[in-house]
Structure formats: C-alpha cells, structure tokens
C-alpha cells in the first residue's frame, strides 16, 4: 500500500512565558498513515492539534519528537514541496498584488515558464469562480471568501500530487462551498490525493473516504467513515422505524426483548434491537398494534455524535 503521508510518534511541545516557562503539548505521540488517491478528512475540536500537524508536514514548525514524511520524502526535503499544494487556514497573501500577479509569483516559485503560468492562472481562477474583473484587483480589496478562492487556486498551480487544505470552506458562502466541494471531488477523480482538515461535518460526509479524529493531540479514531459510523459496541444491532404506534403503549413489550430499547418519534417510534434474531418478535409486536414498518437499518452513529464522542473526554 502506497501512503502519501506517514507520521510516526510525532510530538510537539510549545514553551510559553519568558521567566517562568510553561509547557503545553500540542501533539502527543501521533501515528498516522494516509493512503493515496483519496480524500482524507482530518477532524478534531479546537486545539486538538490539526493545524500543528499540517504545519509540521509543511515544515513550518519542527516536531519535538517523531518523524513525518510526505510522498515518501522527509518533510524538510524542499524538492518534495514541488509536488504538493497547500492552502492555509484563513489564507493571507500579499495584499499589494492582484490575484493574477500572486498566481504568477507562485508559479515562478515552482519554476513554471511564462506561458504555463498564464495558462494555469486563467484556468484555476476560473475554476474557483473568481470573476475576470476581480483578478486584476489588489488582494487588499478582497473579501474573506474571495481570498479563500485564491488560496485554493494557488495551491493547485503546480498540478500537485497531494494537496493539503486547512479548513478550505471557511469564509465561503453556500455557492462557494458547493463550488469548492465539486473542485475537491474533481481532484480525486483526477487522481490527486487530498488531505483536508475541516469542522464542517456535511463536507466530510459528502467528500471523505477516510478520516482521522484527533483529541488532545492524540489520535482518537481513524479509518473509513462508514466503519467508524457503524456503532462499535453493537456491530449487528438494528434500528426499526415504525409509524402509527404509541411508543409508551408498547414500551413494556419491547423492553421484554433482551437489550432492546424504544424511543418515541413524532409519528411513531424507533426500536433498537441488539441482534437480527430479535427482528421477528418486533415485527409481530408492530402488527399486533396496527403499526406500519417504514425502515430497518443497521444502527450507526451520526457523524456529529461520533465527532462529539471522539473529540471530548
């Protein structure tokens, strides 16, 4: 298996204060492997260590312990940076430059010739939805959402194999979010790997193949989103959704089934059973009470429940 990001025992400790030094651990012995060709979601609450990890991968800060490699190369390898893209959180660029000039400058840093710089600038600024007239305006006149679009565009100027997005949807309106979501999905279709940190759970559900959740600088969970959402304490438990029954009227009968529970809904009830073998008993009960079965599905955590569970102690 080819990993695009490999992190082994990464720790980062910050020292604050001048005379009386205080130490805080932003990352604590983090291990992580990210497969290529997919969109990887990097989740965690504020201060969980997401941005610290990305900054180490970008060689902006140095780890206190451990190693990290990107595309098989040590993160300090400057040449490797020619194969990746990065859009920081709330990006800020040279405000005296226009969007076209910024793209041209960054294209030069990758050694692109004038024709390639012009072509990529036009192509990418169109793709992120920046109007023609705005491309000739200085960035100091840009809104947060426009800067975010430029940030995404500049991260792709070198046709990277792997892109890091730190909160890519921040500051975008709903149309902008949809545009960027489509753009990220397109990247995967083109074979580009995406490593993305975000708080917007609907984007994770819509885009990410695998996720990792950080809590207090440690890895709380990782894997395929579907696997993580399947309730880990009840691999075979089912939710039976019923309409036209009174939850209180049948509660005693449901709770007679081992491990089953019932929850009232506006038009009926949700019954949770621990095993498929209990399904017949529940269906009999529904029929006897003139209820209507609307859905049977494996019990799963919602992403929000998963996020809250794994990002708080």
């Amino acid at each position: 298996m080819k990993y695009v990001v490999e992190i082994e025992g990464l720790s980062k400790e910050y020292e604050t204060g001048f005379l009386k030094k205080k130490r805080s651990l932003a990352l604590d012995d983090l291990y992580l492997q990210v497969k290529g060709g997919q969109i990887f979601g990097f989740l965690g609450g504020n201060g969980a260590g997401k941005t610290t990890t990305i900054k180490i991968l970008m060689s902006l800060i140095f780890p206190t312990a451990g190693t990290a490699s990107v595309l098989g190369k040590n993160v300090a390898d400057t040449a490797m940076h020619g194969r990746i893209g990065y859009c920081p959180e709330s990006p800020y660029f040279y405000d005296y430059l226009t969007a076209n000039e910024l793209m041209d400058y960054f294209g030069r840093l990758f050694g692109l010739d004038a024709a390639a710089r012009k072509r990529k600038t036009d192509e990418l600024l169109s793709e992120v939805g920046l109007a023609e007239k705005d491309r000739r305006r200085q960035l100091r006149k840009f809104s947060k959402g426009m800067l975010q679009r430029v940030g995404i565009a500049q991260s792709l100027i070198n046709d990277p194999e792997l892109v890091f997005f730190d909160e890519p949807m921040s500051g975008l309106d709903p149309v902008g979010r949809r545009d960027i979501r489509d753009l990220i999905a397109n990247l995967r279709a083109k074979g580009v790997s995406v490593f993305m940190s975000t708080h917007i759970l609907s984007d994770i559900e819509a885009l990410c193949d695998e996720v990792a959740i950080l809590r207090g600088g440690k890895l709380a969970a990782s894997g395929k989103l579907g696997d993580l959402l399947a309730k880990d304490d009840a691999g075979r438990s089912l939710i039976v959704e019923v309409q036209g029954v009174n939850a209180d009227a049948i509660r005693a009968s449901v709770e007679f089934i081992a491990g089953a529970s019932i929850e009232a809904t506006p038009d009926g009830a949700n019954i949770q059973i621990l095993d498929e073998s209990d399904l017949d008993a529940v269906l009999d009960l529904i029929r006897k009470n003139s209820g209507r079965l609307t859905r049977v599905e494996p019990a799963k955590l919602s992403l929000e429940e998963l996020f809250v569970r794994d990002t708080t102690l």
């Binding site: 020619g82 920081p88 990758f110 070198n158």
Partner: peptide, 14 residues
C-alpha cells in the same frame, strides 16, 4: 506576522 510565509515555505523555497 501576516503569515504570508506559510504559503511560501510550503512551496519548494528554502
């Protein structure tokens, strides 16, 4: 201070 270095050092710039 303005964090423009973030974008610069993520590129092949020593």
């Amino acid at each position: 201070e303005k964090r423009t270095v973030y974008s610069i050092f993520a590129k092949p710039v020593s």
